[in-house]
Design a protein around this nucleic acid. Structure first.
Length: 816
RNA sequence: ACCCGGAUGGCGAAACUGGCAGACGCGAGGGACUUAAAAUCCCUUGGCCGAAAGGCUGUGCGGGUUCGAGCCCCGCUCCGGGUACCA
């Protein structure tokens, strides 16, 4: 078809995405369009997206939804004049890859590169503005060498230590399981009940950064949901440690409480079953029962123990003195008290704590009221539940504190107990230290050597990487130790300090350590001398925009912040927060349900990109709902976006350069530029696309021929969303070079205001008519115009009581 | 249980700071073009009453504030996500 043949009667020729997209992907690669000058950029912008784990199934729509949203943001920044660095890589180490390799009988060292290659093919096809020169792969020695280096930095700061800790153990698979691999206390693979085992593990002291991790959140420009999730995870609570003397013994039990005000109602103590004082405190008559209970709780796994609601426990036979009342109260052990939190012991106040209440009911322990709600008094029975409200209510049955408000009593009771040496105010955190040991194969070996003479010796930095060897028997076995521990030829090494034969650490580190610093590596990905080059790091970091899934709100994002702080404190980098701005994207569901293989509603992006083109697929993903909330993927919905792209292409093909400019279309254009610019910056992609559709409809209204000046800016606005077609249009319009070097169109604020507006006229709050009036019309004139309008006047019965006038919007006349 | 979100046509969704509810798109119905179909283009499309003009009604439920509430306040219901015996 030639231009001469075109008319509004001729259907637009759909463009062929396969041709257009391949053409531009090749040109981008040839011309280095997506490559940024890492050393020279005057106006740098670091756009980061969460890197994927390269699964064998290939790219998921969820990945593509995330990446596209990030890509649009990056391309938009570039059009606004930044040099945008948008790297991508692979989180290739870890239990997922290892388990999959086990399942298909392959070796992860051979399988992972294949999966990575497949991902790479799919990603390139999606047309992301990624600078592939900076790709990282966490499973390659040139990357994990530096992961091990990061470990050593933490070790040097005294933030890495070893201790025995509980792990989930599957007796059938004979392996340690991560918490995510345990479902309702059963192994997710074989369904066997999971047990608890104790192993020596490496930990990072993230808990000593709790306060800073919490406080810094206030200043971060992050999604509120993400910040809230981190606050909950860190879980700071202000309270007091109270000391209880054990009757007839020298021991003291320390408990943590946030409700010191209720101490007069503490009718018993509870220790965690594994509490170190249990043995010393237990009386002989109860010793057997206590031992049995301890054994029973130990056999349970970590997860199911926490989900059990029914209270169990056993009396130790011992009593402690309540320091407030001076009365003896029994000491119990029960698994509802967790050794990991606080002091591993509590004072039970069944009147004002649900769990203590349930326990007291189950074991017939006394329940005393020490707080009264308004309307109640000291003698009002508690009924069927504890009264836990600490916002109002007054203290009762508590000697000199009777009548005091709870809030006031908290500090006063603590102070009074402190005077007698029974209390210290403390702040407690829910956040535990980060266990980084994995008794697995597919990860970076922890760079530590154990020497009989020198003890724990870190591998010298000059000897990194500690290479992960290729071993055929990488499957974990019933020894409970890492597969690497079966290879003496690997772990037997001379001590770096004294040269005597020593033994390597045979555990590998957690995948979350790989991803806790990858953003630091990207700008220096090709640098073999250092983990991250100081100059480039200073130029590009912290990350300007990070976009990813909120499932990583706590672990990945918190660990990244922690590692960044540690590296900052060690003098390696000049900032302590890695991500200036973070936005959590939503989730794509399908027909109202989560996508899953079992439901058979998983979307294969390849199939859609094949049928509709990558541009249409990208744009549909962004159109189906608000980016930060996600949305429902509907099979047919994509056709609307594709029709829009076809119409855009047809309009560009038939564009005229000599017609008259329509002032209404120009006004619409300027409003659209503003709207699309605002929305693209705030990730409101769905409404940005709607605005562009609306504008194209206006341009094509009736049988008018679109003017070049009307269409050019639309091509520029569409570019972040449909980059290949935008390039094609840009070239078709006679522009040289990439549309991404052509800038973002500007709007004239004067074009946003209309001389005339439609004024809504209400009578008693109901819309009764609309008037076209000058936009600066005064109330009196508007009122007169309304009275003159027949359709409105007929509702104006009775006396006018009030007139509400909102300029440019509405006139409400209240009559009656 | 707790902490966050959310609930709007047949469907996905819009609605600035309290000011025309349903933009944009899908689907559906009708029409044009076509031998026909597809594609494309045009029109209609929350519900109810009405021949029409027009009117009434409508944003999960019950109250409230306001000239005016999808939006604010109080009390619920349901759905999604996260955390979960955290003292």
């Amino acid at each position: 078809m030639t231009h001469a043949d075109s008319s509004d009667q001729t259907p637009p020729v759909p463009y062929d995405p396969a041709t257009v997209e391949t053409r531009w992907q090749l040109r981008w690669a040839e011309r280095g369009t997506n490559a940024v000058d890492l050393d020279g950029a005057p106006n740098p912008f670091y756009a980061l997206m969460m890197f994927p784990y390269p699964s064998a199934e290939g790219l998921h729509v969820g990945n593509l939804f995330a990446f596209t949203g990030s890509d649009i943001s990056a391309r938009f920044r570039r059009l606004q004049g930044h040099q945008v660095f948008q790297p991508l890589g692979y989180d290739a180490f870890g239990i997922h890859s290892e388990n999959y390799a086990l399942k298909v009988g392959a070796h992860p060292m051979e399988l992972t590169p294949k999966n990575v290659a497949n991902f790479q093919r799919q990603l390139e096809r999606a047309g992301l503005m990624v600078d592939w020169r900076s790709k990282v792969d966490t499973s390659r020695p040139d990357y994990y060498k530096w992961t091990q280096w990061v470990f050593l930095q933490l070790y040097k700061q005294g933030l890495a230590y070893k201790k025995a800790a509980a792990v989930n153990w599957c007796p059938t698979d004979k392996t340690v399981l991560a918490n995510e691999q345990v479902e309702n206390g059963l192994c997710e693979r074989c369904g066997t009940a999971v047990e608890q085992r104790f192993l020596e593990q490496w930990f990072f002291k993230i808990s000593s950064y709790a306060e800073r991790l919490l406080n810094n959140l206030d200043a971060l420009d992050w999604s509120v949901v993400t910040k809230q999730a981190q606050r909950n995870w860190i879980g700071r609570s202000h309270g007091a440690e109270l000391t209880f003397h054990v009757e007839g013994a020298s021991e003291h039990v320390r408990v943590f409480t946030t409700r010191a005000d209720t101490i007069f109602g503490a009718t018993y103590l509870v220790l965690a079953p594994e509490h170190p004082l249990v043995d010393a405190v237990t009386r002989d008559a109860q010793r057997h029962a206590v031992r049995e209970y301890q054994a029973a709780t130990k056999r349970q796994d970590l997860i199911s123990r926490k989900s059990v609601k029914a209270k169990t426990g056993v009396f130790t036979g011992a009593y402690a003195t309540n320091p407030a009342t001076g009365t003896p109260i029994p000491i119990w052990i029960a698994d509802y008290v967790l050794m990991e939190y606080g002091t591993g012991a509590i004072m039970a106040v069944p009147g004002h704590d649900e769990r203590d209440f349930d326990f007291a009911r189950a074991f017939d322990l006394p329940i005393v009221r020490v707080v009264a709600a308004s309307g109640d008094d000291a003698t009002t029975p508690l009924g069927d539940s504890a009264y836990t409200d600490d916002a109002d209510g007054v203290i009762v049955n508590s000697a000199q504190f009777d009548g005091m408000a709870v809030r006031e009593a908290k500090s006063n009771v603590t102070a009074w107990l402190a005077e007698h040496g029974h209390a210290t105010p403390v702040v407690n955190y829910r956040l535990h230290d980060w266990c980084i040991s994995r008794q697995r194969y597919w990860g970076p070996p922890i760079p530590i050597i154990y020497c009989d003479a020198c003890g724990v010796v870190p591998v010298p930095e000059s000897q990194l990487p500690v290479a992960l060897p290729f071993i055929p028997d990488f499957k974990p076995d019933d020894s409970g130790i890492s597969p690497l521990a079966r290879h003496e030829e690997w772990y037997r090494v001379p001590c770096p300090t004294c040269g005597a034969m020593a033994r390597r650490e045979t555990d590998v580190s957690d995948t979350f350590l790989d991803s806790a610093w990858y953003f630091l590596r990207y700008p220096s990905a090709s640098d073999t001398r250092v983990a991250f080059d100081p100059t480039r790091t200073a130029k590009w970091l912290p990350v300007d925009s990070y976009i990813g899934g909120n499932e990583h709100a706590v672990l990945h994002l918190l660990y990244s912040r922690f590692v960044t702080m540690v590296l900052h404190d060690a003098g390696h980098i000049g900032f302590e927060e890695p991500f200036t701005r973070f936005r959590a994207h939503g989730m794509i569901i399908r027909d109202g349900a989560k996508m899953s293989k079992s439901k058979g509603n998983v979307i294969n992006p390849d199939v859609y990109m094949e049928e509709w083109g990558a541009d249409a697929f990208r744009m549909y993903l962004m159109f189906l709902g608000p980016y930060e909330e996600g949305g429902d993927f509907q099979h047919k919905g994509i056709s609307g976006v594709r029709r829009f792209l076809d119409r855009l292409w047809a309009t560009v093909r038939d564009v005229s350069t000599d017609g008259a400019i329509d002032i209404d279309v120009m006004r619409k254009l300027h409003r659209t530029i503003k709207k699309v610019g605002d929305d693209s910056g705030t990730l409101a992609y769905n409404t940005a696309i709607a605005a562009m559709m609306e504008y194209l409809n206006a341009v094509r209204r009736g049988d008018r021929v679109a003017q070049r000046a009307e269409v050019m800016p639309l091509v520029q606005m569409v570019a972040p969303y449909a980059p290949h077609l935008a390039e094609e249009c840009w070239a078709e319009l006679g522009q040289a070079g990439s549309v991404f070097d052509g800038g973002w169109p500007t709007f004239d604020p004067a074009m946003l205001v209309d001389d005339e507006v439609e004024l809504v006229v209400q009578v008693n709050g109901k819309v009764r008519g609309k008037l076209r009036v000058a936009s600066d019309v005064h109330e009196a004139n508007a009122l007169a115009a309304a009275r003159a309008d027949h359709g409105i006047a007929k509702f104006l019965v009775g006396e006018v009581k009030k007139v509400v006038f909102v300029p440019k919007r509405l006139l409400n006349i209240v009559v009656g």
